[in-house]
């Protein structure tokens, strides 16, 4: 498809554990357009972090195994690239990462300035296509580039609304607040001018007022700089705030993909509906989803949601439904989707 930045097809990832192998991703299909903000929502354990990490190529090497599938990013097959190329050209350059907990992402014994310098030394956009692209042991950091990088850093720190950026660079990570650390993380993710930013639950550790500020900032900066954002979250409210499109995952399978209005206005997969119903609202009271998420070591066959689904039939146990297109950019994987003509018999 034209304008497609990232496409994941039939991705199966399993993790080895003492109890057996856990099927954490089961044939996931997923795509993103350039410049869009896409939400990846689901409960904990549904595989959203695994998918994000598979795209970055940072799955734990000794336990995770990519069994099949392909990840195409900007015309290249990421799974086929050698590790060295990935590290030098893709990770941190083309695809940046904003971690969930900004307090553990910084090294506590170096100043923030040192850590940003290290980032720019290896991942600065000024390096792109340059002659000193290859990093060696004695590689120096040319003074001209260092000065130019420093100017960019200060400009971006100002854009993320950090008061007094020069002073912040001299501080240690523990000397700034959680909200400021997350602003620094956003700045660091955007500094290499990536095409895709993967933000893994960037606001879960923050308070509501700070969350609102950070979401606003992320949305605004990503739009200005034309970066696509993959935003994983279990907070549907946060997803509503900034996403263009949303993909819902359940137990390692993607079940529905929709533009944000269609997602909240016309949920078509029974799981999506139940997830929306379990949001606390004063009108509806409290409604949970009965049952528990399945164990991934021995997952239910077919559609993995069928044991908790009140529409489940024998067909659901037998095979996983194919994606069905029900509107512009809205597709759902369910044999008995909500809003379909009732099946005969």
């Amino acid at each position: 498809m034209a304008g497609e930045l990232l496409s994941v097809r039939g991705l199966r990832v399993s993790f080895a554990s003492d109890a057996g192998s856990a099927q954490v991703l089961d044939g996931v299909a997923f795509s993103m357009k350039a410049g869009e903000i896409k939400g990846l929502v689901g409960e904990s354990g549904c595989g959203k972090t695994t998918l994000a990490r598979a795209i970055l190529g940072i799955l734990p090497r000794n336990s995770a195994r990519i069994e099949s599938g392909e990840i195409r990013f900007d015309g290249r097959d990421l799974l086929g690239l050698p590790e060295e190329t990935l590290a030098r050209e893709v990770r941190g350059r083309e695809i940046a990462y904003i971690p969930q907990d900004p307090s553990t992402a910084f090294n506590p014994v170096f100043t923030i300035g040192t850590q940003i310098d290290d980032l720019m030394r290896f991942k600065s956009p000024l390096l792109r296509g340059g002659t000193d692209d290859r990093q060696g042991f004695f590689n120096r950091y040319p003074r001209e580039r260092r000065a130019a990088d420093r100017a960019r850093v200060l400009e971006l720190l100002r854009l993320v609304q950090l008061p007094n950026p020069e002073a912040v660079l001299r501080k240690y990570p523990h000397e700034v607040s959680g909200g400021q650390r997350q602003r620094l993380m956003i700045a660091m993710a955007l500094l290499p001018e990536p095409k895709l930013v993967i933000a893994d639950e960037p606001t879960t550790a923050l308070d509501v007022t700070v969350q609102a500020q950070i979401l606003k900032l992320l949305k605004q900066l990503a739009r200005e700089r034309g970066a696509a954002v993959l935003f994983t979250t279990h907070d549907l409210g946060a997803a509503y705030e900034i996403c263009d499109r949303i993909t819902v995952m359940y137990a390692g399978q993607e079940v529905e993909e929709a533009p944000v209005d269609g997602f909240f206005g016309r949920p078509s997969h029974p799981y999506t509906r139940k997830l929306l119903d379990s949001l606390p609202t004063s009108e509806a009271g409290i409604r949970g989803i009965p049952g528990e998420i399945p164990r991934l070591i021995d997952p239910p066959p077919g559609c993995r949601f069928h044991p908790r689904c009140d529409r489940a039939s024998a067909l659901c146990r037998a095979e996983r439904p194919a994606p069905e297109r029900i509107g512009p950019a809205h597709s759902v994987r369910c044999h008995h989707r909500i809003g379909a003509a009732e099946p005969a018999g």
Binding site: T209, L215, K216, L236, G237, E241, F264
Partner: peptide, 13 residues
């Protein structure tokens, strides 16, 4: 005002 309300005005705006 900071709580996201689904279907309403977006807090980020």
């Amino acid at each position: 005002a900071a709580i996201p309300v689904i279907g309403g005005r977006r807090v980020t705006e």
